[in-house]
């Protein structure tokens, strides 16, 4: 039995790895690759939001604006100074991370819905700066003709080629997030989310970890921004309005807030779902809205919780099954609800 599950897991993992590795060749057209590239960018944003909101309990609703900060940093460094993607990516993470620290400062004073409106407000302020500082940002017209990257003389100038950059960043992002959350930093985050006062009494430097959660999530937004700027070659402020934050939040919750696999599932599902829903035109967003409500009302844990429920009832072992002890914990969790 045990051996069999290991083999099944290995096969599923191998299959998934092969599909991921050769996706641009399997895809029917370039547009499909583009959708998956965007999904990858959204996964990175969702990982960041999940870390801040799902784990540390900090409402970072400036996520879309911070994505914009990253995109503009990369876009402007490229068009104004001619710097390449490889420098712009870390630069965008640093700049977005710094702005993220500022956005996070109010979390030391206000919480829950008050923090939500403050971060929304600061996001709006960032967006308005992007629109109005025309000399720097190009205003409402945005920044165009951003150059795609070049890898040691090999031009990464198509969606198919860019796919591999995104794949690497997504995998790295996932592993780094998991590593951060696995040990004491992650535990301090969760302690703050579960009980702020008790966390303080346990010696958790709450202010430090709150700001850290904002900085990390903002740095992810920055990375997503640099990727987007160099993939799309054109950016404008309207892309980074509050609705982009909502989109990322929606995908994170559809996948599963507080579960990194949830970010991946949600980040893949929603952009693809959106493409399929294009067929029904105007009804697209109505269906979208209704699906959100169904998820919230009936499966608040998102798709990840749904698979867990299915697994518990049918005893199928998915490759992403948690380790035995974690599983036990989560079962008690479900029965608690």
């Amino acid at each position: 039995m045990r051996k069999k599950t290991i083999i099944i897991r290995a096969l599923l993992f191998g299959g998934a790895a092969l599909i991921l590795l050769f996706f641009p060749y399997i895809a029917q057209n370039r547009y499909q690759v583009h959708i998956i590239n965007m999904a990858g960018i959204y996964i990175i944003l969702s990982l960041g939001l999940n870390l801040a909101m799902g784990y540390a309990g900090q409402f970072n609703l400036a996520m879309g604006a911070l994505w914009g900060v990253g995109a503009y940093t990369a876009g402007l460094l490229n068009t104004r100074l001619g710097l390449p993607f490889w420098i712009n990516l870390p630069a965008a993470m640093i700049v977005a991370g710094l702005i993220g620290a500022i956005v996070g400062l109010p979390s030391l004073k206000v919480r829950s819905h008050y923090l939500a409106i403050v971060t929304i407000g600061l996001g709006e302020v960032i967006n308005i700066i992007l629109i109005n500082e025309e000399k720097l940002t190009g205003g409402a017209l945005g920044v165009s003709r951003i150059k795609m990257p070049n890898f040691f003389g090999f031009p990464i100038n198509t969606d198919e080629r860019f796919y591999y950059i995104i794949l690497v960043v997504v995998i790295l992002g996932f592993l780094v997030t998991r590593q951060i959350l696995k040990h004491h930093i992650g535990r301090s985050f969760r302690a703050i989310r579960d009980d702020y006062q008790a966390a303080k009494a346990m010696g958790v430097n709450t202010a430090y970890y709150q700001i850290l959660a904002f900085i990390i999530s903002a740095a992810y937004a920055g990375a997503a921004g640099a990727l987007f700027a160099h993939l799309n070659t054109y950016i404008s402020p309207d892309i980074f309005e509050f609705k982009s934050t909502l989109f990322v939040m929606t995908m994170t919750m559809v996948g599963g807030m507080g579960s990194l696999a949830g970010s991946v599932v949600g980040g893949l599902t929603l952009p693809i779902l959106q493409e399929y829903l294009r067929v029904i035109k105007d009804w697209q967003l109505v269906v979208y809205g209704i699906s959100i409500m169904i998820v919230v009302l009936f499966v608040p844990g998102g798709v990840i919780e749904l698979t867990r429920r299915m697994r518990n009832s049918r005893k199928i072992h998915w490759p992403w099954s948690p380790k035995p002890e974690e599983e036990k914990l989560e079962e008690t969790n479900v029965s608690e609800n």
């Binding site: 909502l246 939040m249 929606t250 109505v286 979208y288 809205g289 959100i292 409500m293 919230v296």
Partner: peptide
Amino acid sequence: LLGTIGLGFV
């Protein structure tokens, strides 16, 4: 937040 935003979309 998300549930009511969903309703808003609708």
